[in-house]
Simulated scan of single mutants.
Amino acid sequence: MTEGIRFDPAQIRELARILRDTDLSEIELVEKDSRIRVVRQVTVAPAATATVSVPPAPPAAAPAAPATAAAEPAEAAPPPGAVTSPMVGIAYLAPEPGAAPFVQVGARVEQGQTLLLIEAMKTFNQIKAPKAGTVTRILVENGAPVEYGEPLMVIE
């Protein structure tokens, strides 16, 4: 561990509690020069049980199963040009209630420009544009909870 950096055990316990209560697999908190990342190992046994229960009904489920299986990977993969959430928290599209949003669909943004805020652990984190381009879609609503890796908006 790096000397001089002290982590609050209560804060780590709180992050672990959030993981357990929300069924998330990991959570990360970044403040100034310190970073805390708590990862929970996810067991794959329930998925194997679900797979075993699918084969007994192949005649009725066969046409629907491929469509569902094909739809899931498409939803899991972020769209091209997506800006994804670096943390779990609440997304805010404007700097304060009643203010104009940081960006709107069709807006031209520069690399490093603030796109939105994510509040995590009572800290507002600026989410900046990773590249210059045009905002083509905003995929979150103001005040909506977001998860790590969730697509927030698309810049093309």
Rank of each mutant, 00 (worst) to 15 (best):
S25A: 15
E26P: 03
E26Y: 11
E26D: 13
E26K: 13
E28M: 09
E28T: 14
E28R: 12
L29P: 02
V30S: 03
V30I: 10
V30D: 11
V30T: 12
E31T: 15
E31Q: 14
E31P: 07
E31W: 13
K32T: 07
D33F: 02
S34F: 08
S34D: 07
S34G: 03
S34R: 15
R35N: 10
I36N: 08
R37Y: 04
R37A: 01
R37T: 11
R37M: 06
V38A: 15
V38I: 15
V39C: 10
V39S: 14
R40Q: 10
R40K: 15
Q41Y: 12
Q41M: 08
Q41I: 03
Q41W: 07
Q41L: 11
V42W: 02
V42G: 13
T43Y: 03
T43E: 02
T43A: 09
V44H: 02
V44M: 03
V44F: 02
V44G: 14
V44S: 01
V44E: 05
A45E: 12
A45H: 07
A45K: 09
P46K: 09
A47Y: 10
A48E: 05
A48G: 06
T49A: 15
T49Y: 08
T49L: 14
A50G: 14
A50H: 05
A50M: 06
A50P: 00
T51P: 04
T51N: 09
T51Q: 10
T51A: 15
V52H: 12
V52G: 07
V52P: 00
S53L: 10
S53Q: 13
S53A: 13
V54K: 04
V54Y: 04
P55Q: 01
P56C: 10
A57C: 07
A57H: 11
P58N: 01
P58H: 04
P59Q: 03
P59H: 09
P59N: 06
P59F: 09
A60H: 05
A60T: 12
A60K: 05
A62Q: 07
A62Y: 06
A62V: 00
A62F: 11
P63I: 07
A64I: 13
A64P: 05
A65G: 00
A65N: 07
A65R: 06
A65S: 00
A65Q: 07
P66R: 14
A67F: 12
A67W: 08
A67L: 15
T68R: 13
T68N: 06
T68C: 07
T68P: 02
A69N: 11
A69T: 04
A69L: 15
A70P: 00
A70V: 00
A71R: 10
A71D: 04
A71P: 00
E72G: 08
E72R: 05
P73K: 08
P73E: 01
P73Q: 08
P73T: 11
P73F: 04
P73H: 10
A74R: 13
E75N: 08
E75W: 12
E75V: 14
A76F: 10
A77N: 12
A77M: 13
P78C: 09
P78T: 08
P78I: 00
P79Y: 09
P79W: 06
P79M: 09
P80E: 10
P80C: 02
P80F: 03
G81V: 03
G81F: 05
G81P: 06
A82V: 02
A82L: 01
A82E: 04
A82M: 03
A82Q: 09
A82G: 00
A82P: 07
